[in-house]
């Protein structure tokens, strides 16, 4: 069938080329086509592919997002220290420049792949896919993806993760969820980090931060944590473990470290 003589027109698609149909053609050689596809459909397609990889190998994928300096890497270090005997963990690190964060993670004895994005302000599903080729998923239980520190752009790009974790540190404003609604609406859990500093900060109200999140119709759990003095860390570990168990049976945890 071709597009020139009309042999591709069947009773089934005839309505499309009638006036007003989505492939209708006007006399002056113009053609209007209704598409109705996401602008990020290519990224979303790749993200779905990544998710299939994770699911096939029963690897829990967690995307960590926050402003720069909210404590994502410190949280990961403390998490690895506590969970690495139980789970095989790997980390994908996104930064504009430097391998510093990957070096910090590797010094904890777990594999880390650094993605340097250059000037790009977010990770996308293709970058994560390339990074996955450097990891052996069949030996892993949990992958943390530490996104580029930024409360705007990363929220729009699905990476194939199972859960979004958004950190809000007490040195930022408690109204961040109201200022960055796209990011905080995407959160499956909000971690209020650096709560050890609360006694010396008089302008961060954790109840207000919770209320701003709730105003976004997001009723995800909120945990107050400090990677430094361990506040709330056991609740965070429980959240990870519960989600891991939900996607796989506990007795399937791979190759326990001894």
């Amino acid at each position: 069938m071709c597009n020139t003589c009309g042999c591709n027109i069947t009773p089934g698609n005839q309505h499309l080329i009638k006036p007003g149909g989505k492939l209708s053609r006007t006399d002056n050689g113009q053609q209007s086509i209704t598409v109705l596809k996401s602008l990020l459909s290519e990224n979303d397609h790749q993200a779905e592919h990544n998710r299939e990889h994770f699911n096939k190998h029963q690897v829990l994928a967690i995307n960590l997002m926050s402003s720069p300096g909210a404590g994502k890497t410190a949280l990961l270090e403390a998490t690895i220290d506590s969970l690495k005997e139980k789970f095989n963990i790997a980390v994908i690190e996104g930064d504009l420049e430097t391998e510093n964060d990957a070096l910090r993670i590797r010094s904890k004895g777990v594999p880390a792949v650094q993605i340097t994005t250059g000037s790009a302000c977010h990770l996308d599903a293709h970058m994560v896919h390339d990074a996955l080729h450097q990891l052996d998923l069949s030996t892993l239980d949990i992958i943390f993806i530490e996104n580029v520190g930024n409360l705007v752009c990363p929220a729009s790009f699905d990476l194939g993760q199972h859960h979004n974790v958004v950190l809000l540190s007490t040195t930022e404003g408690d109204d961040k969820p109201a200022k960055y609604p796209v990011m905080f609406r995407a959160a499956d859990i909000m971690l209020l980090s650096k709560v050890d500093l609360l006694p010396v900060l008089d302008d961060f109200d954790t109840d207000k931060a919770r209320q701003h999140l709730s105003n976004l119709a997001n009723h995800s759990p909120v945990i107050e944590i400090s990677a430094k003095n361990q506040t709330g860390m056991s609740d965070w570990f429980d959240w990870i473990e519960n989600n891991y168990n939900r996607m796989s049976k506990p007795d399937l945890i791979k190759h326990h470290h001894v």
Partner: peptide
């Protein structure tokens, strides 16, 4: 109430294109 469901507002759609053929 804050238990609400989004009906519209998060779209990023390529709606249609007009081509010269």
């Amino acid at each position: 109430h804050t238990d609400t469901q989004l009906l519209s507002g998060d779209e990023m759609l390529l709606h249609s294109v007009k081509l010269e053929t």
